[in-house]
Nucleic acid binder design. Structure first.
Lengths: 110, 110
DNA sequence: CCGGAAGCCTTGCCATCTTAGGTATCATGC
DNA sequence: GCATGATACCTAAGATGGCAAGGCTTCCGG
C-alpha cells in the first residue's frame, strides 16, 4: 500500500489544469485541491508552479479568468475553460496518449 | 496512417537512453538511431540533447563510456549500462508507470 | 489575540530541451 | 580530384517551466 507521490514531468501541468477546469470553473487555490483529489492525492501542484501557469495559459486564450466570490463570500479569481481550451485539452490528451504508446513500444523493443 | 511524431517531455530522455543501452553497449550517435528504431521512428533525439545527457548520466554512474572502434573501424565512444544504471532504469520505469496511472485516474475523475 | 487556512502573487534558482553552430573522418558520385 | 552527405563528436545561447521560498490579505476558531 505504499503510495509514493508521482512527480510531474515538465509540460504536463497545462494538461492537468485544463482537465481540472473541464469539470467546471474554479479559482487557483481550488484547482490545486481539485487536481489533488482527482489524482487520489498522488499529485501536488505547487502554488509557485500554478499561478505562473494560469497566467501563461490565459495569455494563450485557453482559459479566461475573472474575479468573483466563492460560496463563503471570499473573493477569488475564477477561471473557466474557453472553447479553444477545450480543443487544446483534446490535443494535449492525444499527444500524451501518443507518448505513452511510444514509450510502451520502446519497452517491448529488442 | 498519419503517424505524427511524439514530443518527448523533459525528464524522459534519461530513461530512454538507459533503455536503449539495456539492449547492449553503443556509442552516442548510434543511441539516437536505436531510440528512433525502437520507437518506430516516432521519437527523434537531438544531438544537442543527447551529448549533454550522456555526460550527465555518466557522472551519476549509470553508464560508463570508453573510446573504441565501431565495426567499420571508426573511432567512437561506447557507453554501457552499469549495474547502478540497470537499477536506475527500473526506478524510472516505475516512476513513469505511476505517472501514467495517475494521469489515467485524472481522466476518469469527475 | 493568535495561529492557521484560504486565497493571491513574485522572485530567484536550476535542470533540461532546442537551435544552431563547429570539428573531423570516410565513402560515394561526378 | 573534389564536393557532398553520412558518421561521429562536441559546445554555446536561449527559452521553458517547475521548485523553493518568500510576502501579502482576509477570515475563522480557540
Amino acid at each position: 500500500m505504499t503510495n509514493p507521490k508521482a512527480d510531474l514531468l515538465q509540460g504536463t501541468l497545462d494538461m492537468l489544469i485544463l482537465k481540472a477546469l473541464s469539470l467546471g470553473p474554479l479559482h487557483g487555490y481550488g484547482i490545486i485541491q481539485r487536481i489533488s483529489r482527482m489524482s487520489d492525492e498522488m499529485l501536488t501542484v505547487e502554488q509557485g508552479a500554478l499561478y505562473p501557469a494560469l497566467y501563461r495559459i490565459e495569455l494563450k486564450g485557453w482559459i479566461s479568468g475573472k474575479w468573483g466570490e466563492n460560496e463563503t463570500g471570499r473573493k477569488a479569481k475564477f477561471y473557466k475553460l474557453t472553447r479553444a481550451g477545450q480543443k487544446q485539452l483534446r490535443l494535449e490528451e492525444e499527444s500524451w496518449d501518443r507518448l505513452v504508446l511510444v514509450v510502451a513500444k520502446m519497452r517491448e523493443a529488442t
